[in-house]
Design a protein around this nucleic acid. Structure first.
Lengths: 201, 201
DNA sequence: CGTGGCATGTAAACGGTTACATGATTTA
DNA sequence: TAAATCATGTAACCGTTTACATGCCACG
């Protein structure tokens, strides 16, 4: 019984809240771990079937209502055990692929304006991300929840905040570097014959 | 002619240094962009064939030596154009999948010791990464290269450094939080009723 | 009555990794 | 001569995304 990562996310989500449908789980993933994890229906539904076959979850009929044709699931003991075992395993470094950094690395082949635009776009995305994360942080602080999950959630949140802020700081400095080099007197970036100095600090 | 990302990496690498074989390119990728990009032979060799068929690169015989049976390639004008067009396109946010954060998010289901161990492991990996990146930085500063690529390379390097340092700072603080909560008097982590404060600055 | 959200699912295609197979050359 | 590295390639497999298909329900 070898599972894919999707299965573990679903187990985790069901460990937080039971009796969720595939649709619910997709939303839950998006709204909670969405900024560092994604799942698609094409992955979720087949995986749920498989997890039922493996005895990790059981179909559970909606107690109240049951208006729509929807299938909810809940964890079995085996499912909870499986989740715990997976949690204790060392985490894998996801195969790192950062298209932004790749384009920046090859930036010399294009006009400096291209790299500048990419950095500005990165800054825009990071600013939006920061606003989102700060909103969550504010919400958590003003609506103190007694959930035992909260400390862990706040830790993931604070890493997100720290990385986003660090990237924004870098972005501001990088723009200055590139724009200086672009408008600089003797050493335009694309035909540099001397190595421009990267100032430490 | 729709290309995969691998093709663009290879174009970029050949734009930096011409006449490289599949083997060379793999090494070049590992040694330069390895900390944010990976490529395997199973991807590189078929892609090279395709790029030849598409006229983006041409097989070039080794001028000097040619001892080993190896096939080198060099960029065509079409290949260079193709690279430039791609560079100017907006970058995609890679589907973000961070298994470390996922396990931390579900941490409540395991013992706090499990999450602590994960953070310690993350810190170990980040420390190693920091040493590597700082080594590259030191090398670049003591061996000033006149390469016009250098400013771009240094930018990618400095982002790597900034993110790694931010993650290490977070890791130290997170350990304190978790260990405090673990040994704390009234509010063990698994039944926390107060949200731990995330100190700004 | 139409739109948008709820809800489930499948099929095709893709991109990528892994394992395997082969053999030459260099270095110890 | 053994081991490490150079060097190329293929086949199987996996996980994932995307597009497509279907249809119900609530609300305006």
């Amino acid at each position: 019984m070898k599972l894919n990562q999707t299965a573990y996310v679903l187990l985790g989500m069901l460990s937080i809240e039971d009796n969720q449908s595939g649709y619910d789980l997709r939303k839950a993933v998006q709204q909670s771990v969405g900024y560092f994890w994604g799942e698609s229906y094409g992955q979720i539904y087949p995986t749920l079937k498989r997890m039922v076959a493996d005895g990790l979850i059981v179909p559970a009929n909606t107690a109240k209502g049951a208006k729509l044709r929807r299938q909810e699931y809940s964890l079995t003991e085996a499912g909870r055990d499986c989740l715990r075992q997976w949690l204790a395993l060392p985490f894998q470094n996801d195969p790192p692929r950062n298209e932004f950094l790749l384009k920046l690395f090859f930036g010399r082949e294009a006009s400096p304006a291209v790299s500048i635009e990419h950095i500005q776009e990165l800054n825009r995305r990071n600013k939006a991300m920061l606003i989102t994360l700060e909103g969550i942080e504010r919400y958590a602080q003003t609506n103190p929840s007694p959930s035992p999950h909260l400390p862990y959630w706040m830790l993931t949140l604070s890493l997100g905040l720290a990385l986003t802020r660090a990237a924004l700081d870098w972005g501001a400095a990088a723009l200055v570097t590139l724009e200086d080099a672009m408008t600089g007197s003797g050493t335009p970036l694309t035909t540099a014959t001397e190595s421009p100095e990267v100032k430490p600090g």
